[in-house]
Each structure stands twice: as structure tokens, then as C-alpha cells.
């Protein structure tokens, strides 16, 4: 299982999923904006833009799912219930794992909502 990252104790893992959400949002919006402003520069059809958004969405959702799985592991695989509010190292770790898991859920839904217009829109409208 060398693919799975080791469990590390840092606050940064908390932000993984929201950062993926932000990156996916920017890729979708900036990509569509550039294509629709200068289609001749990109030289692709709008279907290619939709396919690109689909690929970005699959990648983003996979990364968020991975972040959620790691958070679940940090949370003790669901063996403990919140609130983790004792002033101990264990509770701090569990609390952070649980918070990361919730943020991953939020980011997962947000990425789906961001990508949904590409399901229905078939061309640029200026």
C-alpha cells in the first residue's frame, strides 16, 4: 500500500478538498471564458470544452474522495463519535479528521454543482 500516504499530523490536510474544489471551479470557469471569448485561439469545438470539464470533474471528485478516505482514517474509521473536545492529542486528531471529512463532503457536492451547467449548455452565448 505504498500508494496511500502515511498519516501525518498537520493542519494543511484540512484544506485539501476545498483547494481541489477551488481549482476545479477556476479550471471550469476560466476555461469556458477563454474558449467563448476566443474560440479560434483554442481551435476546438464546444463539445471538447464539455469533455474537458467532465475530465476535470472526474479528477477533482477522485482527489476529494481520496481526501475523504484519509480523513475517515484520521477520524479513527468512525469508531469514535463527536464531539472530540477533550484537551488531548487524540481528540485533536479525531476532531481534525472529522472536520476534514465534512469539508470533503461539502466540496464533493460543490464540484458536482459547478460542473452541472456543462451537462445542459451546448454552446457559448455572447
Amino acid at each position: 500500500m505504498w500508494l496511500v500516504p502515511k498519516q501525518i499530523e498537520t493542519l494543511w490536510t484540512l484544506f485539501t478538498a476545498p483547494v481541489v474544489w477551488a481549482a476545479h471551479f477556476l479550471v471550469c470557469y476560466i476555461g469556458a471564458a477563454i474558449y467563448c471569448a476566443k474560440p479560434e485561439l483554442v481551435g476546438l469545438s464546444f463539445s471538447a470544452v464539455r469533455a474537458g470539464i467532465a475530465a476535470a470533474t472526474v479528477i477533482a471528485l477522485s482527489l476529494i474522495a481520496l481526501s475523504a478516505w484519509l480523513a475517515w482514517r484520521q477520524w479513527g474509521l468512525g469508531t469514535d463519535d463527536p464531539p472530540h473536545d477533550d484537551p488531548t492529542r487524540r481528540d485533536r486528531t479525531l476532531f481534525q479528521g472529522f472536520a476534514t471529512l465534512l469539508l470533503s463532503g461539502l466540496s464533493f457536492i460543490a464540484v458536482i454543482f459547478t460542473a452541472m451547467p456543462a451537462l445542459f449548455l451546448t454552446e457559448c452565448i455572447r
Partner: peptide, 27 residues
Amino acid sequence: GVVFPSVTLCALLAYALWLMPGLRPFA
């Protein structure tokens, strides 16, 4: 608090987006 609102919002958003091409039939 999580599943129901997410599914409901997803359905309403899908309906609104589904309407959009018909409102702008320029293509």
C-alpha cells in the same frame, strides 16, 4: 440535514439549467 437538501437542490438546479438552452435559442 445533508442528504435531503443536497438531492433537492441538485434536482432544482438541474431543472433550472435544463430550461436555459430554450431561453436562449440563438444557436
